[in-house]
Design a protein around this nucleic acid. Structure first.
Lengths: 355, 355
DNA sequence: AATTAGCACTCGAATAAAAAGAGTGCTAAC
DNA sequence: GTTAGCACTCTTTTTATTCGAGTGCTAATT
């Protein structure tokens, strides 16, 4: 007999209610202690009314189904990947946030942050401290940013600063060294040309081809200004690339059950590794285990949740921690934060909401 | 009898030539193997002509003098801090760079780097790969940078980007949200006011007091523009603070003899820790061991060398690695690189050297 | 048919004892 | 001053033994 709450779910229906309870209890215990869990431990729990022998039988079944495993014959059980998966998807009881917790989280959000990215960043810092994990952030997608301004500012002999500002309030700059000094006329032309051709263009649409076309159409100015346009191109790339930020790495490095070198390697490639992972193809909340795809940090898992804007994925926020993470508590944290951020940034573009 | 090369040196004169040779040999061997070194190992070296017994006697003396120690009775010797110190200062034979090595290093330097900091950065990356250590960089001192431009650019409703450019080609920006939109007149006033009062001011002289004076002297514009000036202040701080960069951390994290958590803590506080350490009070090249002052990474050491400009310290470049570092090889590397950079940036300010 | 008590069994972890080995310090001879 | 020789020390490695947690199976119980 299934509890009402579990009707219509997935794999869970293959397991009778008691086996579900036992599996959940084993994983709960393992998350707390980190040690293999035996039948006696489970039997001593208040809402389990059967004997260790019965539990042993059930655990043997759960092992055959691939949800649990034994490190060695005479040890208790630990969860497998699919055990965790089932637990997260269908078994665990999320610990709803109390009002105090909500308030705490609200206070952590920097409501005065000048850009959405800074707001998300503040959430990331807070989350990392509250969970004692590393946190990972994918900034507001370049899809939502259009170029609002491209400037060139002379700063020295043949030295120029290129400046690009986007609608989401992000700025990037780059120093260019040219072959010749620009005349006033050339600079004015460049500014006008940029304003006419790039203003309003979404950052992620700015490809090399577009820039090449622009260069070609520039006529006599071509030779002198081409290097600047190349710089523009690189700036746009910068917006796309530097999206992913990890903070609180210390919390991972402090752990003995996670390999430091793997962490370091992950941090080096975080862009490539995480980019594919946080795409539209997934649901709003996603839990990835430490050897799925490119994400190789053994014994770790990553929970990420989407931040939306106008119904579309705009960014993500999540944590990276040990496999045995307190999912039931941390998932609500993350969902609450991304939910609040989603509220805060919706429709912010057009006009300021206050007053 | 002292070798000519050692005349007039320091503590070394207390040690006869053979003891020096033995101490150096022990440290050489320890640097390679990481294991305590015994008398037999030393005796088997080609230019040591005495028996193990003699070496044992000498090693006992070296231990009493505090240069060596035994992890336990029946083990060989390992160097103490002062052993390393003596070795580095007076005993080791630096391995001079071959022409190929010089060429290799030259090729690593990004001669086209638009700013001196970028040049140093390229050296840092190369050094980290060549030595398999982390590298640490202190960027060209703010003392050498004067403010060349402060701009304010409107980017949205009540949103402005503050931009500060220094003579060394560095740029920093900051998004400010103001209470009111600025009129054209206000913006023009601000630009002029900045140009008149801040252009040419060395970055590290821009204190809160100066800014407060400026605010006070601003007259009617005071109320509206004060927040912008606060932003200017923060930007200048940014130039001072973000000087120290570490790269190649992976090389440290990969080692089992260095504590990951200590590395993480160091990385978090690198600014405070390293700032004091790379000051004018020291010689051109400095070796710091992993528990001196604020630098607490057990079993590690840091070698830093100064980059100069017009005879004054302008920046530093160095490596952080295990205590048992191949000093004899790495020190020449660092000295060569900082030397080259010093040459390249000298007098670069006034005019371009090429053509 | 499901549950449970009972029990033999397994295998890792902890403990103890023994052997091996590296290196020393000291003494006496060179 | 140097060195061979040797007893001694202390770690590391090996081997053996015990201990105990936890299991799986069987037979009894509900």
């Amino acid at each position: 007999m299934l509890t009402p709450a579990l009707y219509g779910k997935g794999v869970v229906s293959l397991l009778d209610e008691r086996k579900q309870k036992i599996l959940a209890a084993v994983i709960d215990a393992y998350i707390v202690t980190g040690e293999p869990v035996g039948s006696k431990t489970i039997a001593s729990l208040p809402d389990i009314r059967v004997s260790p022998a019965t539990i042993r039988n059930d655990m043997a079944v759960l092992e055959q189904l691939g949800y649990l495993e034994q490190p060695h014959t005479s040890a208790g059980r630990i969860p497998t990947y699919s055990g965790y998966r089932l637990y997260i998807d269908e078994l665990m009881k999320e610990k709803a946030l109390s009002d105090e917790e909500k308030k705490l989280l609200d206070d952590c959000l920097d409501v005065d942050a000048p850009t959405a990215d800074a707001l998300i960043e503040s959430a990331s810092k807070a989350l990392s401290e509250l969970t004692h994990c590393a946190t990972v952030v994918k900034n507001i997608s370049p899809k939502f940013s259009v170029i609002t301004k491209v400037e060139v500012i002379p700063t020295g002999k043949r030295m120029y600063v290129l400046l690009m500002i986007t609608s989401s309030g992000n700025i990037r700059n780059k120093v260019c060294r040219l072959e010749f000094d620009l005349t006033n006329e050339q600079m004015e032309f460049f500014s006008r040309y940029m304003a006419e051709n790039l203003q309003g263009v979404p950052v992620d649409e700015l490809s090399e081809e577009i820039v090449e076309d622009l260069v070609a159409a520039m006529g006599t100015y071509m030779v002198t200004l081409a290097p600047l346009l190349k710089g523009v191109c690189e700036l746009a790339e910068g917006f796309k690339d530097n999206e992913i930020k990890v903070s609180g790495e210390k919390n991972l490095l402090a752990r003995t059950d996670i390999n430091s070198l793997q962490i370091a390697k992950f941090l080096e490639n975080k862009n490539e590794v995480v980019k594919n992972m946080l795409d539209d193809s997934f649901g709003d909340l996603q839990v990835v285990f430490g050897e799925d795809g490119g994400f190789v940090i053994e014994n770790s898992s990553m929970i990420v949740s989407k931040i939306k804007k106008d119904g579309k994925t705009a960014g993500t926020l999540g944590v990276i921690g040990p496999m045995r993470l307190d999912y039931a508590k941390i998932i609500p944290y993350i969902e609450y934060l991304t939910g609040r951020i989603t509220e805060m940034i919706s429709g912010e573009d057009e006009d300021d909401e206050e007053e």
